[in-house]
């Protein structure tokens, strides 16, 4: 009957989006009168488990198998399925991510559990189990009734605050019994931007478009991002021109973000770009063209030249800290 939360790590720490999933799972468990447990795969430090406890999990199940430190989709799915049965869970909660989505899909078949992704709110339990999810790339919502006994919810970022519970988490180590067959896909290399806030995890995102005129001007975007503790993104033309790497491309066919604040600089606001940012809580648009369509989707706007506005904005942010 328990609610199990699958937590993911990034750079040796539990992802913020996973802590949000833990808090979501805990709130759901409370309304169902059951307990919230977290499952972590691969090496996880005691300090990191403490954060999981604070976010609302009452118990952690740790499958410490070293082979799971790599995100092999089939292996992660098998390890979670084992823990799901072991703790007799009915609901699995996880944060939407590159790995989480892929693992959840396989688990849905393994556990015969109805899976809803892009979950935007806590479920409505008044009649069955109905979940609000974002569809049409954020342009609408669908209320989806899950008909199976077992359920999986992949939640969007920033849909609730992380809880601050005051208790110690008990961590139980679960031996892994995974066979070699689930490791048939091998990771042979990885390239990752180091020391930066990752785009889907960031609370603030600063994106630049062709209005920046060239990659040599990106220091203006990076300076503002640094002051804000933000991740940097870009529009599709900018990534197509190779000014910035593809993993910074925000939009319909790139990364979808849902930060607290999205700052768009020199981006006109094509519908494909808006599709990637329309779940942001607040949007600030900086563009010298007052007719730029992005202003219609914005909460705040500065009509002005990015090369003048950005240094001023960076200084103003520095001044209030």
């Amino acid at each position: 009957m328990a609610v199990l939360i699958y937590i993911e790590q990034e750079a040796g720490g539990i992802k913020k989006s996973s802590l949000e999933a833990v808090s979501y799972g805990r709130t759901l468990a409370d309304s169902l009168g059951t307990s919230a447990l977290a499952v972590g795969l691969g090496p996880i430090s005691t300090e990191e488990w403490t954060k999981v406890g604070k976010a609302g999990a009452v118990k952690g199940i740790h499958v410490a198998d070293e082979r799971l430190s790599a995100g092999i989709i089939q292996a992660h799915a098998s390890a979670i399925a084992d823990v799901f049965s072991y703790v007799d869970a009915d609901i699995l909660v996880l944060a939407k991510s590159s790995l989480g989505d892929a693992v959840a899909a396989r688990l849905s078949v393994k556990l015969q559990a109805g899976l809803v992704s892009n979950v935007a709110a806590l479920p409505d339990l008044s009649e069955g189990f109905t979940v609000k999810r974002s569809i049409f790339t954020g342009k609408a919502f669908a209320f989806t009734a899950i008909k199976t006994v077992k359920k999986i919810l992949a939640i969007k970022k920033n849909i609730l605050d992380i809880r601050e519970e005051d208790h110690d988490l008990v961590v139980e180590v679960r031996q892994s019994s995974l066979g070699e067959e689930v490791f048939s896909a091998k990771i042979t290399g990885m390239q990752k931007a180091e020391g930066q806030v990752s785009l889907p995890e960031a609370d603030i995102v600063v994106s630049g478009g062709r209005g920046l005129k060239g990659p040599e001007n990106w220091n203006l975007i990076e300076d503002l991002a640094r002051e804000l503790g933000a991740a940097t993104g870009c529009s599709k033309p900018v990534s197509d021109l190779n000014w910035r790497p593809h993993h910074e491309h925000v939009g319909q066919t790139g990364i979808k973000v849902s930060p607290t604040l999205y700052v768009a600089v020199g981006i006109s606001g094509a519908i494909q770009h808006l599709a990637g940012v329309n779940s942001s809580k607040k949007i600030l648009v900086i563009n010298k063209d007052p007719e730029a369509p992005f202003f219609k989707a914005a909460d705040y706007g500065i009509v002005g030249d990015a090369f003048e506005v950005l240094p001023k904005l960076t200084d103003a942010v520095k001044a209030i800290k």
Partner: peptide, 25 residues
Amino acid sequence: HAEVVSYELPPAKGAVRLFTTDQVD
């Protein structure tokens, strides 16, 4: 496993609040 019961559009966005370059603070 699941079926859609109903749909909803997001609330309409309010009007944008515009600032000039001198009003950044």
